[in-house]
Design a protein around this nucleic acid. Sequence first.
DNA 1: CCAAAAGTGTTGGAACTACACCCATGA
DNA 2: TCATGGGTGTAGTTCCAACACTTTTGG
Lengths: 230, 230
Amino acid sequence: MAYTYDYPHPAVTTDTAVFSIIEGRLHVALIERGAPPFKGCWALPGGFVGMEEDLAEGARRELAEEAGVTPDQLSGLPFFQIGAFGAPGRDPRERVITVAFLTLVPMDRVTLVASTDAARAEWFAYDDLPALAFDHADILAQARAALSRLVSTDLSADADAVFSFLPEEFTLSQAQTVFETITGAALEKRNFRKWIKAHWELEDLQKKTSGGRHRPAALFRLGGARRQAG
Amino acid sequence: MAYTYDYPHPAVTTDTAVFSIIEGRLHVALIERGAPPFKGCWALPGGFVGMEEDLAEGARRELAEEAGVTPDQLSGLPFFQIGAFGAPGRDPRERVITVAFLTLVPMDRVTLVASTDAARAEWFAYDDLPALAFDHADILAQARAALSRLVSTDLSADADAVFSFLPEEFTLSQAQTVFETITGAALEKRNFRKWIKAHWELEDLQKKTSGGRHRPAALFRLGGARRQAG
DNA sequence: CCAAAAGTGTTGGAACTACACCCATGA
DNA sequence: TCATGGGTGTAGTTCCAACACTTTTGG
């Protein structure tokens, strides 16, 4: 079937940078492209937007299709738009404008499953990335910058989103790891604890971790109604 | 002439929120649509992206065509992307995804000239806007939020951009008006002067204004290489 | 008993807020 | 001479950064 217009139309795709923190390091979900162009190259999961679906909806659909990250797993998690990337020639096939998104998923939790046009789907440490298809290195850099901006200098309105890296119940050390990973700076433990308690209402669950061969840590949850199911 | 694709393509447009400060109030450039849909309605200047042009380039071309704001007048001024807006049904004709931009032009300086499909082009005070076409009220609100974010709580990396509201040579009172207009808060004169001098290198031009029926004010210029031609 | 991470307060400096009066000009 | 906006300093407070030792558990 063919679609005809009176004047030329670009194609529109979405791409999503899925960040997580694995073993204390920032990781991104990438897929290996199973079809040209850039076949065999790693890329952000994404694809063409359906004519009836919203941009974010399309991005989530592609995430499920290519990387096995279902809307279910993303429910309650932040999903931000980073912006549109539309330099002519960024796709060798035709003029393609992509709208990029950013999401944060809990640490050590989401398993990637390749399907449709993805040959593989894997987590990569952000500071050890392969070469990327299209202008995805550029997009990913802007996603990383947006992530930093969530908590930089002063807190953005969306700063709560970074708690999405944490499990529902977390220790203050885990929280510190998250903030250190995002900002790239080492934080002083006592100051961090004062600071986080001053800026967020943390509910002390009156429970402790166990199993570590060290003193057990108190477990907290982000208080108020600020966080939905993770 | 017709253009045919194997699968449906949305149309892609750009829209730009041009902000200025006129008589101490934040204004936005709007055009009155001369053609359907929303004929006779006010809207952000914008239009379809050419197949060979970059998104920002297309936005600037449309700005010149519809509102008479030439790339020349915009040279050296900030031009930020706000994001993509693509809800299905936002344009009654077909699926249209728009990429929105934001620019800041010097106070009391830019004259608007309507042409092509714009019946009129005028400055509107931001807090006294007419009904807008499409989802432009939504886009404009996000543009306004982005403007605030430039200088909110702590300064963003792009905070210099707000000096674009000022003429090349400006008084500290004019600068104070700009910051007050953007933040919406009244600032204390002595504190503002200390603060702006602490955060920016201002070159004292050793000149004074004249003509006001009051004490002349010292003129400054934004120092360093931070500002190109305004 | 040893290794490993959890937990805990105080102090000095920097940055921000609040606040009131005199000055130079044009009409 | 008056109306108008331009120009100036200090003191109190708040927030942030620096800093070291004790506790609890598992092996």
